[in-house]
Design a protein around this nucleic acid. Sequence first.
DNA 1: CAAAGTGGACGAAACGGTTCGTTTATGGAC
DNA 2: GTCCATAAACGAACCGTTTCGTCCACTTTG
Lengths: 343, 343
Amino acid sequence: MSTIKDVSKISGLSLATISKYLNGGNVRDENRQRIDEAVEALGYRVNRNARSLKTNRTLTVGVVMPTLSVPFFGSVISSLDQTLREAGYTSFVCSYDFDRDLELEKLRVLCNNNVDGIVLAAQHVSAKELNEIRNARGSEMPMVLVDRTIPGFVCDSIVIDNLNATYGAVEQLINAGHRHIGIIVGPLDISTANERMVGYRRALEDYGIQIETGKNAKSGQKEDLIQIGRYDFESGYRQFNNFMDMETPPTALCVTNYDMTMGAVTAAHERNVILGKDIGFVGFDAVDLCRIVSPPLSIVEQPTQLMGQKAAEILLKRMAGETLPHPQVIRLKSYLHNRIYQE
Amino acid sequence: MSTIKDVSKISGLSLATISKYLNGGNVRDENRQRIDEAVEALGYRVNRNARSLKTNRTLTVGVVMPTLSVPFFGSVISSLDQTLREAGYTSFVCSYDFDRDLELEKLRVLCNNNVDGIVLAAQHVSAKELNEIRNARGSEMPMVLVDRTIPGFVCDSIVIDNLNATYGAVEQLINAGHRHIGIIVGPLDISTANERMVGYRRALEDYGIQIETGKNAKSGQKEDLIQIGRYDFESGYRQFNNFMDMETPPTALCVTNYDMTMGAVTAAHERNVILGKDIGFVGFDAVDLCRIVSPPLSIVEQPTQLMGQKAAEILLKRMAGETLPHPQVIRLKSYLHNRIYQE
DNA sequence: CAAAGTGGACGAAACGGTTCGTTTATGGAC
DNA sequence: GTCCATAAACGAACCGTTTCGTCCACTTTG
């Protein structure tokens, strides 16, 4: 592999001059040509490790996500990457597959690999650990949280107005006449899950509806109209069935992420429950899905593109050294595709 | 940020000794303790750039995919990452979003960032360009193609037996009595699309069925029973409608990837065509989906996990310097979920 | 007890760039 | 032709590691 020294030898110019030119500096026309020729002849490419060692910059950002198998994150990543790329940065993506240890490991590895910034959809990691990671290098590593935040961790974040998202969804169900409404939320240690639950609660409160508890017809044990799943397909599937097995099942249901919506829709299908007709329904994220099933479903759509873009923009500012008043929290609005069932 | 020199100063040992210990070498018990203490006290972490500069290794592999928004690739990546991680490597994922320029750029950036190996699902890039990229550094960069191959590019590859996948799918439709069978394939410059088309052709041949051409009822122009889409939702949606608008529409349909299957299912739904009943149908990849719709769909499932794992295994061997007889091509079998419609 | 053998510690030279401070070349003004 | 201002080229130090060859201290052996 040829180095800048080879270029120097062939062109007859000093290292410093070559380096300067390669980094956008001015050289005489004649020399520019000689360098270009030498670079071409050798197939020279700068060694980014060497450069980074000296400059402490890599023009690289790390993106850490809980999974790469759902369109939601794929879409966020796509726009994130685009915005960063336009500014000259490359993004490297890792998934921690919902695993706690992996989440920490990926973050550490990224820091060690000297990325210039990190975008993180956090789940298990604690504020303490994050602070540690953020300050592992001398200076504070620029970091932006997306979608999910960590309580106590002060950091720029781009999130959805989850509270109002479920508030709106539940409100719609109430307006359609429902009074006995169930919700399937995610693990409450994930900020989005918690906020979505609060939105549900508040809507019922505001409309003076008590959150009732039902009783499981099979097991006989009391069960809440708030069911906690794990944000995966099986949770949606199982909890939907739980609801239907209650003594007095809810007349409407709100399901609060992509996979669980898929699971609930599947379960409904298998039980011959027609969503939107036999039972009121609002799902999350599965925008494609709601075109497929009949009648079409009401769905909360999150502005994934915007999320990625905003995250990138803030991160770019931080990496450029701008000192914004610290915790920049951007709360984006979701959009409720409201489809009312009619015979 | 503290360096190995600081550790040396505090512990009173030489750089060489510290480095040796940190890389698994033997030191006296007493010294091991002193180093551990110093490392702990300083919060020292090795600088991977410096290390890589010296060793020419990064323990890192680059993964380049056409998109991160479909479960198929997400699943491949997940198992890929796991296998690599167990061997001490970290994987960084990029998507080129189906874009030609981006595909090249991502590959180049990865090479420049000195990854130790590359896993690529290739689309637009040519054999010539790939060879150039692979040899841009002194030695040949270990590389494994997954899912898609490039004609003329000699390289280890993990692919699906696409030909037999569609062959089997079409065969099933024939056995169910269909003789007028359509197929929606992807862009023919993608190897999988081409192979899947050939499988379709061969099945018809083997059963002595001529590939007929229909005529579009609206436009009046002749149209083939082989429709070429772009592997996206809209293609599936549009081409399905094209088929239905033909003078004599096919009585059965094979749709050859995830997004197009989603599109076709959606279109069918909107036209009130019941797949499996009104028209024979085999889709691809959308395993979740086939549980949701009614009647359940026949679907070709690809062994994504195995694909990722095999790719990782071969890449690991290459990175370890093993010289296998060159083009290792592993062709995995897909699985046909065969669901026959009955009243 | 001397010689040989052994395991660990050490110095110093890389790896491939960037950059600071300095020297050299260019060219315009007088 | 001399002087000075400015622009470009240069040398050398440095970034944080690894590693090779050498050296030292301690055991073992005859």
